[in-house]
Design a protein around this nucleic acid. Structure first.
Length: 423
RNA sequence: GGAUAGUUGGCAGAGUGGUCGAAUGCGCCAGUCUUGAAAACUGGUUUGUCGCAAGGCAACGGGGGUUCGAAUCCCUCACUGUCCGCCA
Protein backbone atom coordinates (compact mmCIF):
# COMPACT_ATOMS: atom_id res chain seq x y z
CA UNK A 1 0.00 0.00 0.00
CA UNK A 2 1.32 3.40 -0.96
CA UNK A 3 2.01 5.97 1.69
CA UNK A 4 -0.46 8.79 1.75
CA UNK A 5 2.16 11.33 2.58
CA UNK A 6 4.14 10.35 -0.48
CA UNK A 7 1.11 10.81 -2.69
CA UNK A 8 0.59 14.23 -1.19
CA UNK A 9 4.16 15.25 -1.81
CA UNK A 10 5.15 13.55 -5.05
CA UNK A 11 1.99 12.96 -7.02
CA UNK A 12 3.36 14.26 -10.31
CA UNK A 13 6.58 12.27 -10.14
CA UNK A 14 4.56 9.18 -9.30
CA UNK A 15 2.25 9.64 -12.25
CA UNK A 16 5.24 9.84 -14.50
CA UNK A 17 6.78 6.68 -13.07
CA UNK A 18 3.49 4.81 -13.40
CA UNK A 19 3.77 5.27 -17.16
CA UNK A 20 6.23 2.37 -17.12
CA UNK A 21 3.37 0.14 -16.00
CA UNK A 22 1.24 1.41 -18.86
CA UNK A 23 -1.44 2.49 -16.48
CA UNK A 24 -2.83 5.84 -15.60
CA UNK A 25 -3.71 6.12 -11.94
CA UNK A 26 -3.67 9.90 -11.87
CA UNK A 27 -7.43 10.01 -11.42
CA UNK A 28 -7.22 7.60 -8.53
CA UNK A 29 -4.45 9.57 -6.92
CA UNK A 30 -6.48 12.74 -7.26
CA UNK A 31 -9.43 11.01 -5.71
CA UNK A 32 -7.25 9.76 -2.88
CA UNK A 33 -6.10 13.27 -2.15
CA UNK A 34 -9.62 14.63 -2.31
CA UNK A 35 -11.02 12.03 0.04
CA UNK A 36 -8.06 12.49 2.31
CA UNK A 37 -8.70 16.18 2.50
CA UNK A 38 -12.35 15.61 3.34
CA UNK A 39 -11.30 13.10 5.94
CA UNK A 40 -8.92 15.50 7.57
CA UNK A 41 -11.50 18.24 7.61
CA UNK A 42 -14.05 15.94 9.19
CA UNK A 43 -11.47 14.84 11.74
CA UNK A 44 -10.72 18.42 12.65
CA UNK A 45 -14.37 19.18 13.20
CA UNK A 46 -14.71 16.06 15.28
CA UNK A 47 -11.66 16.96 17.33
CA UNK A 48 -13.19 20.31 18.18
CA UNK A 49 -16.45 18.76 19.31
CA UNK A 50 -14.57 16.21 21.40
CA UNK A 51 -12.43 18.91 22.96
CA UNK A 52 -15.60 20.58 24.12
CA UNK A 53 -17.22 17.47 25.51
CA UNK A 54 -14.00 16.43 27.22
CA UNK A 55 -13.92 19.81 28.85
CA UNK A 56 -17.51 19.50 30.03
CA UNK A 57 -16.97 16.02 31.38
CA UNK A 58 -13.98 17.19 33.36
CA UNK A 59 -15.88 20.13 34.81
CA UNK A 60 -18.74 17.90 35.86
CA UNK A 61 -16.34 15.67 37.70
CA UNK A 62 -14.93 18.67 39.57
CA UNK A 63 -18.34 20.09 40.39
CA UNK A 64 -19.54 16.80 41.82
CA UNK A 65 -16.46 16.63 43.97
CA UNK A 66 -17.19 20.09 45.28
CA UNK A 67 -20.79 19.13 45.90
CA UNK A 68 -22.21 21.55 43.36
CA UNK A 69 -24.88 19.20 42.06
CA UNK A 70 -27.05 21.83 40.46
CA UNK A 71 -24.31 23.30 38.33
CA UNK A 72 -23.18 19.85 37.30
CA UNK A 73 -26.63 18.90 36.14
CA UNK A 74 -26.85 22.09 34.18
CA UNK A 75 -23.71 21.15 32.28
CA UNK A 76 -24.96 17.63 31.78
CA UNK A 77 -27.81 18.95 29.72
CA UNK A 78 -25.37 20.19 27.12
CA UNK A 79 -23.89 16.79 26.46
CA UNK A 80 -26.46 15.04 24.28
CA UNK A 81 -26.20 17.54 21.48
CA UNK A 82 -22.43 17.32 21.34
CA UNK A 83 -22.65 13.58 21.47
CA UNK A 84 -24.98 13.47 18.52
CA UNK A 85 -22.72 15.73 16.45
CA UNK A 86 -19.69 13.65 17.36
CA UNK A 87 -21.46 10.47 16.33
CA UNK A 88 -22.33 11.84 12.92
CA UNK A 89 -18.82 13.12 12.32
CA UNK A 90 -17.31 9.88 13.50
CA UNK A 91 -19.40 7.88 11.08
CA UNK A 92 -18.56 10.19 8.24
CA UNK A 93 -14.89 9.93 9.14
CA UNK A 94 -14.79 6.16 9.13
CA UNK A 95 -16.72 6.01 5.88
CA UNK A 96 -14.16 8.26 4.26
CA UNK A 97 -11.32 6.25 5.69
CA UNK A 98 -12.82 3.05 4.37
CA UNK A 99 -13.23 4.61 0.94
CA UNK A 100 -9.66 5.80 1.04
CA UNK A 101 -8.32 2.37 1.90
CA UNK A 102 -10.36 0.69 -0.79
CA UNK A 103 -8.78 3.04 -3.27
CA UNK A 104 -5.27 2.63 -1.94
CA UNK A 105 -5.54 -1.15 -2.08
CA UNK A 106 -6.08 -0.89 -5.82
CA UNK A 107 -3.00 1.16 -6.60
CA UNK A 108 0.17 -0.81 -7.30
CA UNK A 109 3.65 0.12 -6.20
CA UNK A 110 5.48 2.94 -7.95
CA UNK A 111 8.05 1.50 -10.36
CA UNK A 112 11.68 2.33 -9.85
CA UNK A 113 12.94 4.81 -12.49
CA UNK A 114 15.00 2.05 -14.12
CA UNK A 115 11.94 -0.08 -14.87
CA UNK A 116 11.52 -0.23 -18.65
CA UNK A 117 8.18 0.77 -20.12
CA UNK A 118 6.32 -2.19 -21.52
CA UNK A 119 3.18 -4.25 -21.61
CA UNK A 120 4.05 -7.93 -21.57
CA UNK A 121 6.93 -10.23 -20.76
CA UNK A 122 8.19 -9.64 -24.29
CA UNK A 123 9.13 -6.13 -23.27
CA UNK A 124 11.37 -7.26 -20.44
CA UNK A 125 14.94 -6.15 -20.72
CA UNK A 126 17.58 -8.87 -20.94
CA UNK A 127 20.32 -7.67 -18.61
CA UNK A 128 22.71 -10.52 -19.24
CA UNK A 129 22.93 -14.08 -20.54
CA UNK A 130 25.46 -16.60 -19.35
CA UNK A 131 26.39 -20.21 -19.83
CA UNK A 132 26.53 -22.48 -22.81
CA UNK A 133 23.47 -24.03 -24.30
CA UNK A 134 24.42 -27.65 -24.87
CA UNK A 135 23.78 -29.43 -28.14
CA UNK A 136 22.05 -32.63 -27.12
CA UNK A 137 22.01 -34.24 -30.50
CA UNK A 138 19.67 -37.19 -30.47
CA UNK A 139 19.38 -37.22 -26.69
CA UNK A 140 16.81 -34.52 -26.57
CA UNK A 141 13.87 -35.66 -24.50
CA UNK A 142 11.69 -33.23 -22.57
CA UNK A 143 11.88 -33.69 -18.82
CA UNK A 144 8.47 -35.33 -18.47
CA UNK A 145 9.66 -38.16 -20.70
CA UNK A 146 12.97 -38.40 -18.87
CA UNK A 147 11.11 -38.48 -15.58
CA UNK A 148 9.18 -41.46 -16.84
CA UNK A 149 12.14 -43.18 -18.46
CA UNK A 150 14.22 -43.09 -15.28
CA UNK A 151 11.26 -43.44 -12.94
CA UNK A 152 11.90 -40.13 -11.18
CA UNK A 153 8.50 -38.49 -11.14
CA UNK A 154 5.04 -40.00 -11.49
CA UNK A 155 2.58 -37.38 -12.64
CA UNK A 156 -0.35 -39.79 -13.07
CA UNK A 157 0.06 -41.11 -9.56
CA UNK A 158 -0.20 -37.54 -8.30
CA UNK A 159 -3.42 -37.13 -10.26
CA UNK A 160 -4.78 -40.21 -8.53
CA UNK A 161 -3.87 -39.02 -5.06
CA UNK A 162 -4.62 -35.32 -5.42
CA UNK A 163 -5.09 -34.03 -8.94
CA UNK A 164 -3.12 -32.50 -11.78
CA UNK A 165 -0.18 -30.42 -10.66
CA UNK A 166 0.70 -32.58 -7.66
CA UNK A 167 3.58 -34.79 -8.82
CA UNK A 168 4.93 -37.73 -6.87
CA UNK A 169 8.73 -37.83 -6.74
CA UNK A 170 10.24 -41.29 -6.64
CA UNK A 171 13.64 -42.76 -5.82
CA UNK A 172 16.45 -40.66 -7.21
CA UNK A 173 13.88 -38.07 -8.22
CA UNK A 174 12.94 -37.62 -4.56
CA UNK A 175 16.59 -37.59 -3.50
CA UNK A 176 17.34 -34.95 -6.10
CA UNK A 177 14.64 -32.77 -4.53
CA UNK A 178 16.11 -33.08 -1.07
CA UNK A 179 19.60 -32.50 -2.40
CA UNK A 180 18.59 -29.28 -4.09
CA UNK A 181 16.77 -28.01 -1.01
CA UNK A 182 19.76 -28.63 1.22
CA UNK A 183 22.15 -27.19 -1.33
CA UNK A 184 20.10 -23.99 -1.63
CA UNK A 185 19.72 -23.60 2.12
CA UNK A 186 23.43 -24.11 2.73
CA UNK A 187 24.31 -21.59 0.05
CA UNK A 188 21.89 -19.05 1.51
CA UNK A 189 23.36 -19.54 4.97
CA UNK A 190 26.84 -18.99 3.54
CA UNK A 191 25.55 -15.74 2.08
CA UNK A 192 24.44 -14.59 5.51
CA UNK A 193 20.80 -15.61 5.56
CA UNK A 194 19.46 -17.27 8.71
CA UNK A 195 17.29 -20.29 8.29
CA UNK A 196 13.72 -20.41 9.54
CA UNK A 197 11.04 -23.04 9.19
CA UNK A 198 7.77 -21.14 9.19
CA UNK A 199 4.16 -22.32 9.31
CA UNK A 200 2.67 -23.39 6.00
CA UNK A 201 -0.78 -22.09 6.88
CA UNK A 202 -1.26 -18.43 7.65
CA UNK A 203 -4.08 -16.30 8.93
CA UNK A 204 -5.86 -13.50 7.16
CA UNK A 205 -3.75 -10.74 8.70
CA UNK A 206 -0.61 -12.30 7.26
CA UNK A 207 -2.19 -12.54 3.83
CA UNK A 208 -2.93 -8.84 3.99
CA UNK A 209 0.51 -8.03 5.32
CA UNK A 210 2.35 -9.17 2.23
CA UNK A 211 -0.38 -8.18 -0.21
CA UNK A 212 -1.81 -11.57 -1.27
CA UNK A 213 -5.08 -10.36 0.16
CA UNK A 214 -7.40 -8.89 -0.78
CA UNK A 215 -6.60 -8.90 -4.51
CA UNK A 216 -5.14 -12.40 -5.00
CA UNK A 217 -7.54 -14.28 -2.79
CA UNK A 218 -8.43 -16.77 -5.52
CA UNK A 219 -4.81 -17.83 -5.99
CA UNK A 220 -4.47 -19.30 -2.52
CA UNK A 221 -5.89 -22.48 -1.12
CA UNK A 222 -8.18 -21.57 1.72
CA UNK A 223 -9.36 -23.61 4.66
CA UNK A 224 -12.73 -22.08 5.48
CA UNK A 225 -13.21 -24.05 8.70
CA UNK A 226 -10.34 -22.33 10.45
CA UNK A 227 -9.96 -19.44 8.01
CA UNK A 228 -6.35 -20.23 7.20
CA UNK A 229 -4.54 -19.97 3.89
CA UNK A 230 -1.94 -22.36 2.49
CA UNK A 231 1.12 -20.28 1.69
CA UNK A 232 1.81 -19.58 -2.00
CA UNK A 233 5.41 -18.75 -1.05
CA UNK A 234 7.56 -18.63 2.09
CA UNK A 235 7.65 -14.88 1.58
CA UNK A 236 4.30 -14.68 3.34
CA UNK A 237 5.09 -16.27 6.72
CA UNK A 238 8.70 -15.07 6.78
CA UNK A 239 7.95 -11.46 5.98
CA UNK A 240 5.08 -11.49 8.47
CA UNK A 241 7.54 -12.25 11.23
CA UNK A 242 8.06 -8.50 11.07
CA UNK A 243 4.44 -7.39 11.08
CA UNK A 244 3.82 -4.67 13.68
CA UNK A 245 7.47 -4.63 14.63
CA UNK A 246 9.80 -1.72 15.25
CA UNK A 247 13.29 -3.05 14.59
CA UNK A 248 16.59 -1.69 15.82
CA UNK A 249 18.42 -0.12 12.85
CA UNK A 250 21.60 -1.74 14.16
CA UNK A 251 20.10 -5.09 13.19
CA UNK A 252 19.55 -4.08 9.58
CA UNK A 253 19.71 -5.66 7.15
CA UNK A 254 17.90 -8.67 8.58
CA UNK A 255 18.40 -11.70 6.34
CA UNK A 256 16.22 -14.79 6.52
CA UNK A 257 15.98 -17.86 4.39
CA UNK A 258 13.52 -20.70 4.50
CA UNK A 259 12.52 -23.78 2.63
CA UNK A 260 8.81 -24.48 2.27
CA UNK A 261 6.48 -26.21 -0.10
CA UNK A 262 4.35 -23.63 -1.92
CA UNK A 263 0.71 -24.04 -2.84
CA UNK A 264 -0.92 -22.22 -5.71
CA UNK A 265 -4.30 -22.71 -7.26
CA UNK A 266 -3.06 -21.36 -10.60
CA UNK A 267 -6.57 -20.72 -11.78
CA UNK A 268 -6.62 -19.93 -15.47
CA UNK A 269 -3.38 -21.61 -16.52
CA UNK A 270 -3.32 -23.94 -19.48
CA UNK A 271 -1.41 -25.43 -22.40
CA UNK A 272 2.34 -25.90 -22.69
CA UNK A 273 2.80 -23.74 -19.60
CA UNK A 274 1.48 -26.49 -17.37
CA UNK A 275 3.17 -29.47 -19.02
CA UNK A 276 5.34 -31.57 -16.72
CA UNK A 277 7.02 -29.53 -14.04
CA UNK A 278 6.46 -26.18 -15.68
CA UNK A 279 3.58 -25.15 -13.45
CA UNK A 280 2.38 -27.00 -10.36
CA UNK A 281 -0.10 -26.60 -7.55
CA UNK A 282 2.48 -27.75 -5.05
CA UNK A 283 6.18 -27.18 -5.40
CA UNK A 284 9.27 -26.68 -3.29
CA UNK A 285 11.17 -23.45 -2.97
CA UNK A 286 13.90 -21.87 -0.89
CA UNK A 287 13.17 -18.22 -0.34
CA UNK A 288 15.44 -15.39 0.78
CA UNK A 289 13.97 -12.37 2.54
CA UNK A 290 15.52 -9.13 3.73
CA UNK A 291 14.43 -6.23 5.87
CA UNK A 292 16.57 -3.28 4.93
CA UNK A 293 17.31 0.33 5.63
CA UNK A 294 15.97 2.39 2.70
CA UNK A 295 19.42 3.73 1.96
CA UNK A 296 20.84 0.32 1.17
CA UNK A 297 17.94 -1.68 -0.24
CA UNK A 298 18.99 -1.37 -3.89
CA UNK A 299 22.51 -2.49 -3.18
CA UNK A 300 21.06 -5.47 -1.33
CA UNK A 301 18.80 -6.22 -4.26
CA UNK A 302 21.85 -6.48 -6.50
CA UNK A 303 23.53 -8.75 -3.98
CA UNK A 304 20.52 -11.03 -3.98
CA UNK A 305 20.62 -11.26 -7.76
CA UNK A 306 24.32 -12.09 -7.54
CA UNK A 307 23.55 -14.82 -5.04
CA UNK A 308 20.96 -16.42 -7.30
CA UNK A 309 23.32 -16.15 -10.27
CA UNK A 310 25.98 -17.98 -8.31
CA UNK A 311 23.54 -20.82 -7.64
CA UNK A 312 22.78 -21.22 -11.31
CA UNK A 313 26.46 -21.14 -12.16
CA UNK A 314 27.23 -23.82 -9.61
CA UNK A 315 24.48 -25.91 -11.15
CA UNK A 316 26.06 -25.23 -14.55
CA UNK A 317 22.80 -24.10 -16.07
CA UNK A 318 22.64 -21.55 -18.88
CA UNK A 319 20.66 -18.60 -17.61
CA UNK A 320 19.70 -15.04 -18.25
CA UNK A 321 18.70 -12.13 -16.06
CA UNK A 322 15.72 -9.98 -16.95
CA UNK A 323 14.73 -6.61 -15.68
CA UNK A 324 10.96 -6.77 -15.67
CA UNK A 325 9.13 -4.13 -17.62
CA UNK A 326 6.34 -2.15 -16.02
CA UNK A 327 3.62 -4.32 -17.49
CA UNK A 328 5.13 -7.53 -16.13
CA UNK A 329 6.08 -6.07 -12.76
CA UNK A 330 4.22 -7.47 -9.78
CA UNK A 331 1.64 -5.34 -8.01
CA UNK A 332 3.71 -4.84 -4.86
CA UNK A 333 7.14 -4.55 -6.44
CA UNK A 334 9.16 -1.46 -7.34
CA UNK A 335 11.85 -3.35 -9.21
CA UNK A 336 12.10 -7.03 -10.08
CA UNK A 337 14.77 -9.14 -11.72
CA UNK A 338 13.71 -12.49 -13.06
CA UNK A 339 16.22 -15.25 -13.60
CA UNK A 340 15.49 -17.83 -16.24
CA UNK A 341 17.23 -21.05 -17.17
CA UNK A 342 17.24 -22.49 -20.65
CA UNK A 343 15.46 -25.76 -20.99
CA UNK A 344 17.11 -27.30 -24.00
CA UNK A 345 14.60 -29.95 -24.97
CA UNK A 346 11.69 -27.58 -24.60
CA UNK A 347 13.72 -24.88 -26.30
CA UNK A 348 12.48 -22.21 -23.98
CA UNK A 349 13.49 -20.09 -21.05
CA UNK A 350 11.94 -21.03 -17.73
CA UNK A 351 11.57 -18.58 -14.88
CA UNK A 352 13.22 -19.99 -11.78
CA UNK A 353 13.62 -16.92 -9.63
CA UNK A 354 12.12 -13.53 -9.10
CA UNK A 355 14.03 -11.06 -6.96
CA UNK A 356 12.25 -7.91 -5.90
CA UNK A 357 12.53 -4.74 -3.91
CA UNK A 358 9.20 -3.70 -2.47
CA UNK A 359 10.58 -0.56 -0.88
CA UNK A 360 7.99 0.54 1.70
CA UNK A 361 4.98 -0.93 -0.08
CA UNK A 362 4.78 -4.06 2.05
CA UNK A 363 6.22 -2.41 5.14
CA UNK A 364 3.41 0.13 5.10
CA UNK A 365 0.81 -2.60 5.39
CA UNK A 366 2.93 -4.61 7.77
CA UNK A 367 3.74 -1.58 9.91
CA UNK A 368 7.35 -2.69 9.79
CA UNK A 369 9.47 0.19 10.97
CA UNK A 370 12.79 1.11 12.49
CA UNK A 371 13.64 3.94 14.83
CA UNK A 372 16.85 5.87 14.48
CA UNK A 373 18.02 7.58 17.66
CA UNK A 374 15.26 9.70 18.92
CA UNK A 375 13.65 10.13 15.53
CA UNK A 376 10.18 9.10 14.51
CA UNK A 377 9.74 5.51 13.38
CA UNK A 378 10.34 5.12 9.69
CA UNK A 379 9.14 2.41 7.32
CA UNK A 380 11.76 -0.16 6.42
CA UNK A 381 12.23 -1.68 2.99
CA UNK A 382 11.48 -5.32 2.31
CA UNK A 383 13.01 -7.50 -0.38
CA UNK A 384 12.73 -11.10 -1.34
CA UNK A 385 13.73 -13.59 -3.94
CA UNK A 386 13.50 -17.23 -4.82
CA UNK A 387 16.79 -19.01 -4.31
CA UNK A 388 15.50 -21.16 -5.84
CA UNK A 389 12.24 -22.72 -6.96
CA UNK A 390 12.84 -26.39 -7.62
CA UNK A 391 10.61 -27.76 -10.36
CA UNK A 392 11.96 -25.86 -13.33
CA UNK A 393 15.50 -26.28 -12.07
CA UNK A 394 14.85 -30.00 -12.04
CA UNK A 395 13.35 -29.78 -15.53
CA UNK A 396 16.43 -28.01 -16.86
CA UNK A 397 18.87 -30.27 -15.02
CA UNK A 398 17.25 -33.38 -16.44
CA UNK A 399 16.97 -32.08 -19.98
CA UNK A 400 20.30 -30.32 -20.28
CA UNK A 401 22.39 -33.06 -18.71
CA UNK A 402 21.00 -36.09 -20.50
CA UNK A 403 23.58 -38.29 -22.20
CA UNK A 404 23.80 -41.76 -23.65
CA UNK A 405 24.77 -43.06 -20.19
CA UNK A 406 22.10 -41.24 -18.28
CA UNK A 407 21.57 -37.88 -16.61
CA UNK A 408 24.69 -36.36 -15.17
CA UNK A 409 24.55 -34.54 -11.86
CA UNK A 410 26.46 -31.25 -11.66
CA UNK A 411 29.56 -31.39 -9.48
CA UNK A 412 28.34 -28.99 -6.84
CA UNK A 413 25.31 -31.15 -6.17
CA UNK A 414 26.99 -34.54 -5.88
CA UNK A 415 27.85 -34.12 -2.17
CA UNK A 416 24.13 -33.68 -1.62
CA UNK A 417 22.73 -36.35 -3.95
CA UNK A 418 25.54 -38.80 -3.17
CA UNK A 419 25.22 -40.09 -6.73
CA UNK A 420 26.66 -38.55 -9.87
CA UNK A 421 24.42 -40.01 -12.51
CA UNK A 422 20.83 -41.07 -12.94
CA UNK A 423 20.56 -44.15 -15.12
C1' G B 1 -13.67 -31.07 22.29
C1' G B 2 -14.57 -29.52 27.90
C1' A B 3 -13.17 -26.20 32.03
C1' U B 4 -10.76 -21.84 33.47
C1' A B 5 -7.68 -17.41 33.35
C1' G B 6 -5.96 -13.74 30.41
C1' U B 7 -4.97 -9.82 26.17
C1' U B 8 -2.18 -2.68 28.93
C1' G B 9 3.91 1.17 26.11
C1' G B 10 10.36 -2.08 22.90
C1' C B 11 9.82 -6.09 27.00
C1' A B 12 7.96 -7.47 31.93
C1' G B 13 4.02 -5.77 34.83
C1' A B 14 0.54 -2.34 38.18
C1' G B 15 -3.96 -0.10 37.55
C1' U B 16 -11.99 -1.95 38.79
C1' G B 17 -15.76 4.76 36.81
C1' G B 18 -13.10 11.29 36.84
C1' U B 19 -6.80 14.96 37.28
C1' C B 20 -4.61 7.65 33.88
C1' G B 21 -1.52 8.03 27.99
C1' A B 22 -1.25 5.21 32.14
C1' A B 23 2.86 3.30 38.50
C1' U B 24 7.24 0.38 38.81
C1' G B 25 11.23 -2.56 36.84
C1' C B 26 14.16 -3.85 32.55
C1' G B 27 15.87 -2.08 28.01
C1' C B 28 17.17 2.16 25.10
C1' C B 29 19.05 7.47 24.46
C1' A B 30 21.64 11.80 26.47
C1' G B 31 24.54 13.93 30.37
C1' U B 32 27.81 13.72 34.97
C1' C B 33 31.96 10.91 36.72
C1' U B 34 36.27 8.13 34.12
C1' U B 35 42.47 8.00 30.23
C1' G B 36 38.45 4.82 27.97
C1' A B 37 34.67 1.46 29.39
C1' A B 38 31.65 -0.68 33.24
C1' A B 39 29.18 0.66 37.69
C1' A B 40 26.76 4.68 40.04
C1' C B 41 23.99 9.13 39.63
C1' U B 42 20.76 12.79 36.79
C1' G B 43 17.42 13.57 32.93
C1' G B 44 14.73 11.67 28.78
C1' U B 45 12.07 7.60 26.35
C1' U B 46 4.35 4.68 23.51
C1' U B 47 2.22 5.28 18.82
C1' G B 48 -0.85 7.56 15.25
C1' U B 49 -3.05 11.99 13.52
C1' C B 50 -4.13 17.44 12.73
C1' G B 51 -1.48 22.10 13.22
C1' C B 52 3.70 27.10 11.22
C1' A B 53 3.37 26.84 16.39
C1' A B 54 1.03 26.78 21.06
C1' G B 55 -1.54 22.85 21.44
C1' G B 56 -5.72 19.48 20.19
C1' C B 57 -7.65 14.59 19.13
C1' A B 58 -7.37 9.22 19.12
C1' A B 59 -5.53 4.45 20.81
C1' C B 60 -5.05 -0.10 27.07
C1' G B 61 -6.73 -7.21 21.56
C1' G B 62 -11.08 -5.81 17.42
C1' G B 63 -16.18 -4.09 17.13
C1' G B 64 -20.56 -2.32 19.68
C1' G B 65 -23.09 -0.48 24.21
C1' U B 66 -24.03 1.96 29.29
C1' U B 67 -22.43 6.93 31.31
C1' C B 68 -21.76 13.94 31.59
C1' G B 69 -17.15 10.87 31.86
C1' A B 70 -14.58 3.93 30.46
C1' A B 71 -8.05 0.75 30.57
C1' U B 72 -11.81 0.06 34.53
C1' C B 73 -18.96 -1.82 33.82
C1' C B 74 -22.03 -4.70 29.88
C1' C B 75 -22.44 -7.37 25.00
C1' U B 76 -19.90 -9.62 20.99
C1' C B 77 -15.82 -11.44 18.04
C1' A B 78 -10.71 -12.82 17.72
C1' C B 79 -6.42 -14.52 19.89
C1' U B 80 -3.29 -16.53 23.98
C1' G B 81 -2.08 -19.26 28.52
C1' U B 82 -3.27 -23.30 31.98
C1' C B 83 -5.74 -27.95 33.33
C1' C B 84 -8.57 -32.27 31.48
C1' G B 85 -9.67 -35.40 27.17
C1' C B 86 -7.76 -37.16 22.37
C1' C B 87 -3.31 -37.77 19.55
C1' A B 88 1.92 -37.62 16.14
Amino acid sequence: MLELQRIREQKDEMNKLFEARNIDVSKMLDEVLEIDEQRRKTQQELDEVLTESNRIAKSIGMLFKEGKQAEANELKAKAPELKETAKILKEKGSELKEKLNQLLYQIPNVPNPTVPKGKTDEDNEVVMTKGEIPDLGKYNLPHWELAKKYNLIDFELGVKISGAGFPVYLGKGAKLQRALINFFIDEAENAGFNEVIPPLLVNEASGFGTGQLPDKEGQMYHDATDNLYLIPTAEVPITNIFRDVIVDPKDLPIKKTGYTPCFRREAGSYGKDVRGLNRLHQFDKVEIVQVAHPSQSYQLLDEMVEHVKSLLEKLELPYRVLRLCGGDLGFTSALTFDLEVFSVAQERWLEVSSVSNFETFQANRLKLRFKENGEKPQLAHTLNGSALALPRIVAALLENNQTAEGIKIPKALIPYTKFDIIN
